[in-house]
Simulated scan of single mutants.
Amino acid sequence: MREVPDFPEPGIQFKDLTPVLANAVGLATVTNALAEVAEGADLVAGIDARGFLLSAAVATRLGTGVLAIRKGGKLPPPVHSETYDLEYGSATLEIPADGVELAGRSIFVIDDVLATGGTLAATLSLLDRSDVTVTGVGVVLELGALNGRSRVQSVPVTSLYVV
């Protein structure tokens, strides 16, 4: 992992997992660890964008499908959407409102980093409207000092690495 100072704006210390994901052993290690905690879910959801990579790898390992939690404006209507605050602005997440049968399914959510918890809280709110059971959340890296876990207490959270 590398740390990029002042990205995407001054004062933010961006944690870049690209070197881990570009390494075959690193990717396999992360995939296997997340798949272990996601076991039993009907579907794996990945949050735009790095969560897509991880969720697809985990879903393939588990033999499930994958649901992309997209940034706003990337899906055709109709969509369910949730707008939330970031530490450096605001964003919107979306999922299809039709075309994918979600009701009654169990879903495990994957993202790369848990920081303030805003993205995960918005994802859980979004999925809650789809009548699914979220079995848990898995992240590669948790920034413990930002206490994001406190915003997603309704589900078990597994962090592979906490700084």
Rank of each mutant, 00 (worst) to 15 (best):
S159I: 00
L146A: 12
L120V: 13
E94L: 11
V66A: 13
V137I: 13
E39N: 15
V100D: 01
L102I: 05
V140K: 02
A56C: 09
L75R: 03
A28L: 11
Y88E: 01
V79G: 10
S106Q: 12
V139N: 01
K15D: 00
K74S: 00
L120G: 12
D111C: 10
G63V: 08
D112N: 07
G40D: 04
T64G: 04
E94Y: 09
R149P: 06
R149K: 14
L102P: 08
G118T: 08
T64K: 11
T31I: 12
L27D: 07
A35M: 06
S125N: 15
A33W: 05
S159C: 02
T158L: 01
G65Q: 10
L75A: 04
P156T: 02
D131T: 11
T29F: 00
P78E: 13
I95P: 07
A145D: 10
R129M: 14
V113T: 05
T60A: 15
Q13P: 00
N32W: 04
F7C: 02
Y88P: 00
Y161G: 00
A57R: 06
T116K: 09
L127F: 03
E3G: 00
L53C: 13
S55Y: 07
G11A: 05
Y161L: 15
D48R: 00
T60C: 09
L127S: 02
L126T: 05
V79M: 12
L86P: 12
I95M: 07
G73R: 05
